[in-house]
């Protein structure tokens, strides 16, 4: 997409606003910016077609003569990417920085939903950079962000701001749930990053994230090793990276391996049960299940049929099962101890 020479001078605006050279705008100065991991494609298409409809707000820094972004970070990024040289902008009067920050924040809140990381950055700036009291944050700013007024929520969001960049990016993109991120905060940075890489590789849903993290955390505590080391285990890395297998199957296999390690004795019993089931040679329309976690001694047999012949075949299979030595084995495992 190319911008015309007319557009490169900046969009036509009805009001008389100053035209600022884009190179005078410090895009790296994020003092008043909370936008994080923005999605720019649709904005880029819009600006390329019709230019900017809402001019950004800039603050002139007298010492350097450069401009700081108060509001409009995404628009300025797009303008730069499209090769614009100038931008028409509102210039903020010499208000204090907190006022400017809140102006930018509320302009954002009025026009779009902030992602989790943006909310956490906003709160982090209010607490750290602008030194607002906890009471002010709970009374005014947490509710303004749609987060209620629970002190625990404030603490959580302030902690999220300190997560490592790759984790924050996944969080902003919705690949990591807040619940998972909250759990990740209890881990070391190395463990967090290792888990983040696993999530990226296996594309896990929110429930699976929680399950994987719980399994890994328990295995790490049991084995007195870190999650980072656990995930470096050759058996796990080969499953995670197996190029012959589709990602969902990789995730399934890694999960099975983790469950086996976390619950070795239940896994052995389940294997034994499956072995005996094979020996029973049940036809496909007969399914045999044990009581959940082998807690009881009952087995359940389900017969699926759609014809007299299938029912008769099931009856025959049941009769054979009743005589089978494998049945005795099956009934015996209920009474077996485990070391």
């Amino acid at each position: 997409m190319s911008a015309s020479s007319e557009q490169k001078k900046g969009p036509i605006m009805p009001m008389q606003l100053p035209e600022i050279p884009l190179e005078a705008v410090d895009l790296r100065d994020r003092t008043l910016v909370i936008t994080y991991a923005p999605e720019l494609q649709s904005l880029r298409e819009s600006i390329a077609r019709v230019g900017i409809q809402q001019p950004p707000i800039l603050q002139k820094i007298p010492r350097s003569g450069r401009y700081r972004i108060v509001c409009g970070y995404k628009r300025l990024l797009v303008l730069e990417a499209l090769g614009f040289e100038k931008v028409i902008a509102h210039l903020a009067s010499a208000e204090n920085e907190l006022k400017l920050f809140l102006r930018g924040l509320h302009e954002n809140l009025g026009t779009r939903s902030l992602n989790v990381v943006e909310k956490s950055l906003a709160l982090d700036k209010l607490a750290g950079q602008f030194r607002l009291s906890r009471e002010e944050m709970l009374k005014d700013h947490l509710p303004a962000l749609g987060l209620g007024s629970d002190p625990k929520t404030l603490d959580l969001y302030l902690s999220l701001a300190r997560l490592e960049e790759p984790i924050k990016q996944d969080l902003a993109a919705g690949k990591i749930s807040i619940a998972t991120a909250q759990q990740l905060l209890t881990l070391s940075p190395e463990d967090r990053l290792a888990f983040g890489k696993l999530l990226t590789a296996l594309v896990l849903g929110k429930n699976r994230q929680r399950e994987f993290l719980s399994l890994l955390r328990d295995l790490s505590l049991k084995g007195k090793t870190s999650i980072n080391e656990l995930l470096g285990d050759p058996q796990i890395t080969s499953l995670v990276q197996d190029p012959q297998v589709q990602v969902p199957i990789r995730a399934k296999r890694v999960r099975e391996l983790l469950i086996r390690r976390r619950y070795p004795r239940l896994s052995r019993a389940a294997d034994e049960f499956e072995e005996i089931k094979k020996k029973l040679r049940l036809p496909a329309h007969l399914s045999l299940t044990a009581s959940p976690f082998f807690e009881g001694q009952d087995y359940r047999l389900t017969i699926t049929f759609r014809s007299r012949e299938q029912l008769a075949a099931a009856q025959k299979a049941l009769a054979a099962m009743a005589e089978s030595s494998a049945l005795a084995e099956l009934l015996e495992i209920t009474f077996r101890d485990q070391e």
């Binding site: 505590l221 004795r265 239940l266 019993a269 959940p292 976690f293 082998f294 077996r336 485990q338």
Partner: peptide, 21 residues
């Protein structure tokens, strides 16, 4: 971190063969 699973009352308890032993 033990091998605990929901029992018939929904409460986690050791895998039955473990506690039997």
């Amino acid at each position: 971190l033990g091998e605990l699973f929901p029992g018939k009352d929904g409460k986690p308890r050791y895998f039955r063969p473990i506690r039997t032993r």
